[in-house]
Simulated assay, not measured.
Amino acid sequence: MSTTTIAALGTRSRTLMPGIIVSAMVAASATFLSEHYGAPVLLLALLLGMSINFLAVDGVCKPGIEFTAREVLRIGVALLGLRITFAQIAELGWHPVLMVVLLVSVTILVSIVAARAMGFNQLFGLLTGGATAICGASAALALAAALPSHPQKEKATLFTVIGVSALSTLAMILYPMLARAFDLDPLQAGIFLGGTIHDVAQVVGAGYSMSQETGDSATVVKLMRVAMLLPVIVCAAMVARASGAEPGAKRPPLLPWFAVGFLLLAALNSTGWVPSLVQNAGNELSRWCLVIAIAALGMKTQLKELATVGIKPILLMVGETAFLAALVLAMLHWGG
């Protein structure tokens, strides 16, 4: 490596470091509050970041905040592959796998159609539908990273993260009661909870609050939904390329590098060669990357911008969540 290259890297690091450090500090604060008060850590990171958004407007922190919101996010998404193995999916048989594929596909398609009917861009429907159908805030961030640049993309991403985090927390409380009301057995209850609640942590909390069997099946079904992240990212990239980028913007790649990383890590994790220590470290690193990235995204927006979204996007996300729950219950009733 030449002296010029080393000097350039040093200059680049000094430019980015202030923004990266402040994003990490916000993430650490959000983690502390989440551990002590039980609120979703991504939502807390987002709100804390938004409270100091002036740092991203101008000054020494801006380049690092931009870098963190983009590249650190993609690293976190790639590391999500360490959460799943192909054996976990095979253990439940083909019926739940087929059910997950159908519910994710149908929910996203219905979301795109509903978004267009309500006057939104179809990519907004893909973003909210993917977040609802797959894995909440993590899916929203992953899909946003795959979509082309757009003046409203960051605002739409932040709204989606807020919406799925709030709805997932509400579902963690209400859905176990709904499972009991419909007299679902432990396996069915696990499939219902794992197939409907947005975020992994809330699925685990709701499932094990009912029983060990329900918690186990809910977690595996949820991880199957996480596994759908890769094909949906590829589809999102294809839709984005077909839609065309903004004038002067670079077209997104057909298969983003973080999607390839996700698949490779999932395949490696499936071999059983990855020690549990490395697996846990990768999951923890992924969590930190996503929390730091969402803190940076929060710093890049303003509260007054989110206040202008109106009632229609809220109705869209509530409708998507209700549709997903109804679809899973219908599949359990007629397919079980």
Rank of each mutant, 00 (worst) to 15 (best):
I173Y: 14
L174W: 13
L174C: 14
Y175A: 00
Y175W: 13
Y175I: 06
Y175T: 05
P176A: 03
P176T: 01
P176F: 08
M177R: 15
L178C: 11
L178I: 15
A179K: 03
F182M: 15
F182Q: 13
D183H: 10
L184N: 02
L184K: 06
P186I: 07
P186W: 06
L187V: 12
L187A: 12
L187K: 08
Q188I: 07
A189M: 08
G190S: 13
I191N: 02
L193N: 01
G194D: 04
G194W: 05
T196S: 14
T196I: 08
T196K: 03
D199H: 03
D199L: 07
D199N: 12
D199E: 14
A201S: 13
A201Q: 07
A201G: 07
Q202E: 13
Q202P: 04
Q202C: 01
V203E: 03
V204C: 04
G205A: 10
G205N: 07
A206T: 09
G207Q: 06
Y208T: 07
S209E: 12
M210L: 15
M210S: 10
M210F: 09
S211V: 08
S211C: 05
S211D: 15
Q212N: 10
Q212I: 13
E213F: 09
G215H: 03
D216C: 00
S217F: 09
S217H: 14
A218W: 04
A218K: 00
T219Y: 09
V221L: 04
K222I: 12
K222L: 09
L223V: 01
M224I: 07
M224L: 11
R225Q: 10
V226N: 00
A227G: 05
A227W: 00
M228W: 14
L229Q: 04
L230H: 04
P231A: 11
P231L: 05
V232E: 07
V232M: 05
V232Q: 01
I233N: 00
C235W: 13
C235I: 15
A236S: 12
A236W: 06
A236M: 08
A236I: 02
A237P: 10
A237I: 07
A237M: 08
M238S: 12
M238W: 15
V239N: 04
V239A: 12
V239I: 14
A240D: 06
A242I: 10
S243C: 07
A245P: 04
A245G: 11
E246T: 03
P247T: 09
P247D: 10
G248Q: 05
G248S: 02
A249D: 10
K250R: 15
K250F: 01
R251K: 11
R251S: 14
R251W: 01
R251D: 13
P252R: 05
P253L: 11
P253W: 05
L255R: 03
P256I: 02
W257I: 10
F258S: 05
V260C: 09
G261W: 09
G261K: 08
